[in-house]
Design a protein around this nucleic acid. Structure first.
Length: 183
DNA sequence: TGCACGATGAAC
DNA sequence: TTCATCGTGCAC
């Protein structure tokens, strides 16, 4: 499988978010290669985006978002779940794409509709925070023959506190795909 | 040093 | 609609 190069991530975050749809997330964990097709994502544009964690500035938690593109930003939410992002754009821009739902492809067990369920099913936790996505353990690949897809823009989930930023259509999912999260 | 709250999910 | 559960960021 063709591993997405650094240059893929080092672009406009909305472009990266849209083009991530249909690609394959791969995590090799304890000898097991888990693969899932990305079917739903959200773009977080940077410190000016009040829904983005990086809007709090450079802190120990948001450090990875401020780093170079093509790395995993994994954080704990509600004291019990993990969510995975892909860092985008050049160093210091502090933007990322949240992976919200997967379609199981290989060695994926359990529900994958929702950012925390996705991480659980793929075996991704805080240990993967800051991990390079050009590594052999965790990466995203392009399918050889990507099927045509229709992309639907929507409001991001759970960011009502972000004022007008909550209204922006920065969530994207594959139309009619049954693995897109409900809500 | 304390405290309110969250890019969620599941149960009721 | 409520709750589980804890790291973060910010107030004091």
């Amino acid at each position: 499988m063709r591993k997405l190069p650094r240059a893929f991530y080092d672009r406009d975050t909305v472009t990266v978010a849209r083009e991530l749809l249909g690609t394959l997330l791969v995590h090799v964990c304890e000898g097991v290669q888990r693969v899932g097709r990305i079917v739903e994502v959200e773009a977080y544009l940077g410190p000016h985006d009040l829904a983005a964690h990086s809007s709090k500035g450079l802190t120990p938690r948001t450090r990875v978002m401020f780093g170079p593109p093509g790395h995993a930003y994994v954080y704990m939410i509600y004291g019990m779940h993990f969510c995975m992002n892909v860092v985008t754009e050049h160093q210091g821009h502090a933007s990322a794409v949240l992976l919200r739902a997967l379609e199981p492809v290989h060695h994926v067990q359990g529900a994958t509709r929702g950012p925390a369920l996705l991480c659980k099913a793929m075996g991704i936790d805080r240990r993967m925070n800051g991990h390079d996505l050009l590594s052999d353990e965790l990466y995203i690949g392009a399918p050889r023959t990507p099927p045509p897809i229709r992309i639907v823009p929507a409001r991001r989930i759970g960011v009502d506190y972000a004022g007008r930023w909550a209204q922006r259509l920065l969530r994207f999912y594959i139309k009619d795909n049954p693995f897109v999260s409900q809500r």
